[in-house]
Amino acid sequence: MNRIFLALALLLTLGFSVAYWKMGGFKAAVVTRETTAQPYFLAGRYYEGPAQDEAFGDLTREAYNLRKAGKLRGDFGNIFYNSPESSRDQAKVFVGVFVADTTAQQLPAGYRYRTFAAGQRVLRARINASYLLAPDKLYTGVKDAAAAQKLTLQHIYLERFPDEGEPEVLAVLK
């Protein structure tokens, strides 16, 4: 009986390890120091409050559904206005969809534009991994690169999760 449980545990462990590997769980983020060449336009809504609040989840689902329905065309993303560590308790975030420009699409009711300006010095982290695993790995990569290069972060972060390509985080430098 114990051998059956041991074999089952090993099989499950192997299965979870393969799934984690396939999702990109063993990959590290590639971090580069850059200056943004062009602005990013985000159509969405601002949220300030507990990160675990249902209202924050509702904004995320709303942006996803608008994108899925074709009412907004672009990549899902956020602009955080506080550090990832403090956003676990109190999030200050603009949630929405990155759009090519501010004139090509009609905004849904209650939606506004925010711009992540060109010419900002940033650390850009990218990873070829599932969007479920990417945020923690991207933020860890940014934090480690900033510490290694003795850079100070301004605690403004752009997250972009494209359908095709690598998820990325841009962290503004002081």
Rank of each mutant, 00 (worst) to 15 (best):
3 R>Y: 07
4 I>V: 11
5 F>C: 04
6 L>E: 04
10 L>R: 02
11 L>C: 12
14 L>F: 13
27 K>L: 14
28 A>E: 14
29 A>C: 06
33 R>D: 07
35 T>P: 05
41 F>C: 05
45 R>L: 11
46 Y>H: 15
47 Y>W: 10
48 E>Q: 14
50 P>T: 05
52 Q>E: 03
54 E>T: 14
55 A>E: 12
55 A>D: 08
55 A>F: 12
57 G>M: 12
62 E>D: 14
67 R>K: 10
68 K>E: 02
71 K>E: 00
72 L>V: 00
73 R>E: 00
74 G>D: 02
75 D>N: 07
78 N>G: 03
78 N>F: 13
79 I>M: 07
82 N>G: 06
86 S>N: 05
86 S>M: 08
89 D>C: 04
90 Q>A: 09
91 A>L: 07
92 K>F: 09
94 F>S: 09
97 V>Y: 01
99 V>Y: 01
99 V>I: 14
100 A>V: 10
101 D>I: 11
103 T>Q: 09
104 A>E: 07
105 Q>L: 05
105 Q>W: 04
106 Q>Y: 00
110 G>E: 06
111 Y>K: 07
111 Y>P: 03
112 R>E: 14
114 R>G: 01
115 T>L: 04
115 T>R: 07
115 T>E: 08
117 A>M: 11
119 G>M: 08
122 V>H: 02
122 V>N: 00
125 A>F: 10
126 R>I: 10
126 R>M: 12
128 N>L: 15
130 S>K: 05
131 Y>I: 13
133 L>T: 05
134 A>K: 04
134 A>I: 06
139 Y>K: 03
139 Y>E: 02
141 G>A: 11
142 V>C: 12
142 V>E: 02
142 V>Y: 10
143 K>A: 14
143 K>M: 10
148 A>G: 03
149 Q>G: 04
149 Q>I: 13
153 L>S: 07
155 H>N: 15
157 Y>N: 10
158 L>F: 13
158 L>V: 10
160 R>K: 15
160 R>G: 00
162 P>K: 00
164 E>C: 00
169 V>N: 00
170 L>Y: 14
